[in-house]
C-alpha cells in the first residue's frame, strides 16, 4: 500500500459512512468483480479480493472525499490488494517479470515487426467473445490490466496513472505494447480457428 493511500481527509459520522458506502461505493461492485475476476482468473479469489477491497474501503472511508471518483479509488485499492495479497499465491500462468517483458518489447526491432502485422479489422470483427477473452487472458498481467482499465472499463489515462501509481507516459507506452501483444495473440487465434486472415474480395466469401 502506498503511503498516501489511506490518509484521512474527512471525519464522517457513522451514518455518513454507511450512506457513502451504499450510494457511492457499492454501485461499482459489478465492475469491481469483473476486474477481480480478470486479474485472478478464479471465482473464489475474485470473491475474496472484492470482499477484502470493500472492507478496506469502508475501514478507510475517511480517506475518500465524498462525491469524487469512487470507481478509480476502489480500483486502486483492489489493484494494490491484488499485488500485495494475491499475486504471489495466484495461479497466474504468465509468471513473466514485467521489466523483462517491457525491455523486450521496447526494442525497435520488435516494434517494427509488430506494426506490420497483417491482422485485418474484418477478422477481428468475426472473432467470438470467447476468443477475444482468451487472447486478453493470455497476456502478461500488467499488459492485461491496462487493456481492461482502458478499453473494458473506459478509464482515462490520468485515472489509470492514479490507479496503477505510474506516470501517464508509462500508461501510454504500456497500452501501446499491450495492443501489439494482443494483436499477435488475436492473429494466432484467428489463424488456428481457421479465419481467413489474408486479403480476399467479397465474392470469394462463402459459407
Amino acid at each position: 500500500m502506498t503511503a498516501d493511500e489511506f490518509i484521512a481527509v474527512r471525519q464522517y459520522t457513522e451514518s455518513e459512512k454507511y450512506a457513502i458506502f451504499d450510494r457511492e461505493l457499492m454501485p461499482h461492485i459489478q465492475s469491481m468483480y469483473n476486474f477481480a475476476f480478470r486479474l485472478t482468473q478464479d471465482e473464489d479469489d475474485a470473491n475474496d479480493l472484492v470482499q477484502d477491497t470493500y472492507l478496506k474501503a469502508f475501514r478507510f472511508i475517511n480517506s475518500f472525499e465524498k462525491g469524487t471518483n469512487a470507481k478509480a479509488w476502489l480500483f486502486r485499492i483492489l489493484k494494490n490488494s491484488f499485488i500485495n495479497d494475491y499475486r504471489r499465491k495466484s495461479k497466474e500462468p504468465n509468471k513473466v517479470d514485467y521489466q523483462e517483458v517491457e525491455t523486450y518489447y521496447d526494442s525497435e526491432e520488435m516494434a517494427g515487426t509488430s506494426q506490420t502485422t497483417d491482422l485485418r479489422a474484418e477478422t477481428v470483427q468475426e472473432l467470438l467473445g470467447d476468443e477475444v477473452t482468451n487472447a486478453l487472458n493470455a497476456l502478461p498481467i500488467d499488459f492485461r490490466t491496462v487493456l481492461i482499465l482502458c478499453d473494458v472499463e473506459g478509464f482515462t489515462y490520468e485515472e489509470m496513472a492514479k490507479i496503477l501509481d505510474i506516470p501517464i507516459g508509462t500508461v501510454r507506452s504500456r497500452l501501446h505494447r499491450a495492443r501489439m501483444l494482443l494483436k499477435e495473440k488475436l492473429k494466432t487465434y484467428a489463424t488456428h480457428m481457421g479465419y481467413d486472415t489474408s486479403e480476399r474480395s467479397e465474392d470469394e466469401e462463402s459459407l
Binding site: Q30, Y33, N34, A46, L127, G129, V132, L136, L147, L182
Partner: peptide
C-alpha cells in the same frame, strides 16, 4: 484494426455477473 479491437474489448469480453 485498432478500432475493431477496442470495440471487441468493450463489447465482447465476457462479463461475469457478481
Amino acid at each position: 484494426l485498432e478500432k475493431a479491437i477496442k470495440q471487441a474489448l468493450q463489447l465482447r469480453v465476457e462479463q461475469k455477473a457478481v
